[in-house]
Design a protein around this nucleic acid. Structure first.
Lengths: 220, 220
DNA sequence: AGATTGTTTTTGACTCCTCAAAATGTTGCT
DNA sequence: AGCAACATTTTGAGGAGTCAAAAACAATCT
């Protein structure tokens, strides 16, 4: 059985490769795992020996089929737990990520399936992140962001791709939760600012960096 | 923060001292932790250094006030999680102990409190074991067992003090879940057998060893 | 008292995961 | 091509938790 450290490495390789099967650099992986690069190298060599990842020395790492299966299961646990914490226990959406980081390694597959049923087999978590199904299929649709989409057309927020509590609170305070209707009024790349217009009249201003983390689709 | 290994040592010292503040032997602790005695000695010395237990070399170990507080919190988590798994997720009561062993170290105090509220502040878990409240008060009433109580008076099962899945399944199959009405028809200490009589007519026979693990109170 | 039995502690070693710092390789620039 | 800048790997070391086996101690039985 993979230790929770190994599960975390696999999960981060999956998240950093974002669907594509390109290589993840040691630097990026080390940063995500909050360890020094040498540690990541050591660990990657170890789990490569177990057939969980393929290591191209000096170029990067990618998941094997086996590693991908494990990583998707961890991700499924993480996102279903987040959904449970928000929908059932009514926890603050900005706090559930931390909590799920711990629980995802402690929960069994049986509890996972029962949670899934209790929640009605949700397809996304409270941040709009897609939840892999039991078979490990992941809806990896590509969305536009508030930093890239066309101006002045009606949009709907579908996903927020950063988990830090501060950022999530900022998003909530500006009424940009998944599901919110919105349009981009103006974008000034020189100043690095994006002016929004909410249905209801509010006109929050966010940085281009923040806007790039808010995914949208054309909406009513 | 105590590691989950430390939490487990503290929990087992608490359970083995059963309310009383007498010393727990290294041998008993090692057996409970499923490690060799030398490991228990090493660990106890380490956590004694952190002020969590008091170690009387060669005689045993007991919790300090600080250690007891932590141990009770772990026990509270364990038992509330078991209750959640059975009452909400409808899991088999013989399986939830294993699951809770993992989850008790991963869950935050906030989630704990929300679970507690969701469940309606239960005072016992599905096995009848008392759940410590937030302040760490533990209802440590002393009950008779089927191995010691008077014959032929109406009883009610209140608690089953062994967590192995096999034993719990045996208890369930004989209709001896907490809450069940029952009386002891006969007890033969030589043969080591206890004959029971259920309200409803069934007359299960259990060993004295098993009977000693089923706690009862006088009941209609 | 002396010897036997059983428990506890000590010692040395091992695994897992980590870091710091030195060594090595890659890439881009002039 | 030669060099600078950067990323990666290697090396040596340490903490946490564990085991096996030897040593020390306590309790009990002649």
């Amino acid at each position: 059985m993979a230790t929770s450290t190994v599960e975390n490495y696999l999960k981060h390789v999956l998240l950093l490769s974002e669907g594509g099967d390109d290589l993840v650099s040691m630097g990026a992986l080390a940063t995500a795992m909050e360890v020094v690069p040498g540690t990541a190298t050591t660990m990657v060599k170890a789990i490569a020996g177990e057939g969980l990842v393929e290591h191209q020395p000096r170029y990067g790492v990618k998941l094997t089929a086996k590693g991908r299966r494990l990583a998707l299961n961890v991700l499924r646990k993480h996102r279903l737990i987040e959904t449970f914490l928000v929908n059932v226990l009514k926890m603050d959406w900005s706090k559930v990520h931390e909590e799920a980081e711990q629980l995802e390694h402690a929960i069994s597959d049986e509890v996972l399936d029962r949670l899934d049923a209790l929640l009605g087999h949700p397809t996304t978590d409270p941040h709009g992140d897609p939840i892999p199904n039991r078979q490990g299929r992941l809806n990896s649709q590509v969305y536009a962001t508030l930093a890239t989409c066309a101006l002045d057309i009606p949009l709907r927020v579908v996903r927020v791709t950063e988990q830090s509590a501060e950022f999530l609170q900022f998003v909530e305070q500006n009424g940009l939760l998944p599901g919110a209707g919105i349009r981009v009024a103006d974008r000034n790349l020189t100043a690095g600012l994006v002016k929004l217009k909410k249905t209801g009249g509010r006109t929050p201003i966010v940085s281009v960096a923040a806007a790039g983390k808010i995914l949208v689709e054309p909406g009513k």
